[in-house]
Design a protein around this nucleic acid. Structure first.
Length: 599
RNA sequence: GGUUCGGUAGCUCAGUUGGAUUAGAGCAGCAGCCUUCUAAGCUGCGGGUCAAGGGUUCGAGCCCCUUCCGAAUCACCA
């Protein structure tokens, strides 16, 4: 049992005995003691004054004396400062706690059972007309980490992806490929499939602009010209053919989408993310129409004279929202309703989480209301896990201005920079093969990227500075990985020199402040995990790991583990190191960050 | 204009359900520390009106109100 829980129970008993009243949990506030005072845990007595009818100091004195006399093996000392009762926990208690943490591989995780709620998490959601970029990277990393955190909190998790594989955008790429491609394929060009398609999307845009410019030069209004340009007309014609199931268009669409998927798979693999179930918009966009018609019959929506269908959300404080165009085709919202329908058929979903950028906050506000009206039980409290934009030092990331950072380029750069960094450290990585060195570079490079992005509160817009992210000093992934590798090295050396830590640690050893601080901090891992689940913010975990590592580094520089002469002390320090490394591994694992055995 | 979200050190960010005279890290700057279990590290110094004002109470960076600044969104785009 956690020490804090034990103490809270004792305090409650004590209060009852001292003041003759039952106390609710929220009145017993226990927190870590500030470093400048003696003790490790502090009871805040202010909330108890109404019951004791005494001064804060006297109340604290009462409780302190009670604890020391009643449970001397837990609380060895206490002191009172104003309304704060500082408690000193006995070493034996800390050692027992350490032991229990160390023996539990999945410390801090709640096991998933048959009765656990099922949480579906949608993330990634790429378009099939261009490669993934930095914004997608944040999305994927957050989605993956969130899925891990939810699972660690005892939920069944289904990771899902909705691929936006239809629409005018993909027609643009297809058309450009037909016109300017000369039959180019990923094999013939050596390009990754998604990049190849992306290039044709850019080519379309280039030629299209030229056409518009020309038309404007001939005296046409720009807005008219944008619709009248032959390329745009052709693209629209192609979309119509696609919707009519034209075999040729469909065959081309299939072929080109396959190229893109192969490219995406490579990127996903490099990022270390995966999905349990992938939905394609081409399969779901018609489903939504049915639901909308259904809602129309029930009187939830209404039809305008031109035939378009709308939802009136003015009662909910929102606007009216279009659900079907006047020509009967579906819009974005309709598709999301359709996807929801299919998902609900496939899984007994208790909670749905959408990982989507904050530019779509309004969309999800509306979607939640619509799904609720349509009778989806999880619709009302669906979660839009909204994250901020990634900005670059020279301004916003805009694909039009060419300031977009490609995901594959970024990954490659991170890894090669990590490789360069370790090469510069002459004394490191000796006796290591080239493939091992490359693998370490991959782990470290990806760790730097992932940690840099995940440590920031998801809701906030963040600044991605490519140069800074590669700096391995400070609050970075490699700093944490490095500490892990060092601990593993100590443990290896301990085994080599025949030091075997006994099953049961000796509890009659006095601990110093730094050792206690570390054990105390380790205990906080469980809290960080549940906090991350409640807040839906994996950054809690990242910051927890960093704090732990900082604390361990101080410990590391002050004490010698292997050279410690007192055997009992050595066992405890070794055990402590092992526990720290285990928690780091688990914590980083939640973020999708690997930790190397050596680096 | 409506709605939503942000504003903490020169820069990038933490800050758990409100808690302790002195609000924390990292980077950048300065000064120390490698015969040492991996120095990608550790120690110290300087740097702040927590956007501004008011309120709630024993106590506010955190809760409430007002104002200022920034972002997103308010399409028969996705």
């Amino acid at each position: 049992m956690e020490i804090a829980v034990k103490i809270i129970n004792e305090v409650k008993k004590g209060l009852e005995e001292l003041y003759g009243q039952q106390v609710s949990d929220n009145l017993v506030q226990l927190q870590e003691t500030r470093p400048e005072f003696e003790g490790q845990l502090t009871l805040v007595v202010f909330p108890l004054l109404k019951m004791s009818h005494k001064k804060p100091e006297d109340t604290a004195q009462d409780v302190g004396q009670y604890l020391v006399s009643k449970v001397p093996d837990v609380i060895s000392k206490f002191n009172v400062i104003k309304g704060f009762l500082n408690l000193t926990i006995s070493s034996a208690q800390w050692i027992e706690l350490l032991q229990s943490i160390q023996q539990d591989d999945s410390f801090g995780f709640i096991p998933v059972t048959d009765k656990s709620p099922l949480v579906m998490i949608e993330y990634s959601s790429p378009n099939t007309n261009k490669p993934l970029h930095l914004g997608h990277v944040r999305n994927n990393l957050l989605g993956w980490a969130l899925a891990n955190v939810m699972q660690a909190n005892g939920n069944k998790v289904v990771k899902t992806n909705i691929v936006n594989d239809r629409g005018i955008h993909i027609c643009k790429s297809m058309l450009a490929w037909l016109k300017y491609g000369n039959g180019e394929t990923p094999e013939s060009s050596g390009k990754k499939g998604d990049h190849l398609i992306g290039d044709y999307y850019v080519a379309f845009d280039k030629h299209y602009r030229e056409q518009v410019k020309e038309l404007v030069a001939q005296g046409m209004d720009e807005d008219v010209a944008k619709n009248e340009a032959p390329l745009m007309k052709e693209a629209h014609a192609m979309l119509v053919k696609w919707e009519q199931n034209d075999p040729e268009v469909r065959a081309l669409w299939h072929k080109m989408n396959e190229w893109v998927y192969e490219g995406f798979d490579e990127t996903y693999k490099a990022l270390g993310v995966s999905f349990d179930k992938i939905y394609y918009e081409s399969n779901t966009y018609l489903e939504g129409k049915e639901k909308v018609e259904e809602g129309l019959k029930k009187g939830l929506f209404y039809r305008r004279e031109d035939g378009s269908v709308w939802a009136d959300l003015t009662k909910e404080g929102l606007d009216e929202k279009l659900l079907l165009r006047s020509d009967g085709t579906s819009v974005y919202m309709t598709q999301d309703i359709g996807t929801a329908k299919l998902r609900f058929q496939d899984y007994p979903i208790d909670k749905m989480i959408y990982v989507v950028g904050n530019e779509q906050n309004y969309h999800f506000q509306v979607l939640s209301i619509l799904l609720d009206k349509l009778g989806f039980k999880w619709g009302k409290d669906l979660v839009h896990f909204s994250y901020g934009m990634v900005e670059l030092p020279n301004g916003k990331m805009k694909s039009r201005e060419g300031t977009v950072v490609d995901a594959d380029d970024l990954i490659a750069t991170m890894i090669s920079n990590a490789r360069q960094m370790s090469k510069d450290k002459v004394n490191k990585l000796e006796n290591i093969t080239e493939t091992e060195a490359q693998e370490i570079a991959r782990i470290v490079g990806m760790g730097a990227l992932k940690y840099f992005i995940l440590k920031v509160d998801a809701r906030k817009n963040m600044l991605f500075n490519p140069e800074e992210s590669i700096d391995f000093n400070g609050n970075t992934g490699p700093f944490i990985q490095y500490t892990y590798a060092r601990i593993r090295s100590i443990l290896r050396k301990a085994t080599e020199s025949g030091i075997i830590v006994p099953e049961k640690l000796p509890t009659d050893t006095e601990l110093n402040d730094k050792e206690i601080a570390l054990i105390q901090h380790l205990q906080g891992f469980a809290a960080a995990v549940s906090q991350a689940g409640v807040d839906y913010n994996p950054s809690c975990i990242a910051n927890y790991c960093y704090e732990l590592v900082k604390e361990y580094n101080q410990f590391y520089h002050d004490f010698s583990v292997l050279r410690e002469e007192d055997e009992k002390k050595r066992f405890i320090r070794l055990s402590l190191s092992a526990a720290v490394s285990q928690v780091i591994k688990n914590g980083m694992g939640l973020l999708g960050i690997e930790v190397p055995e050596r680096m």
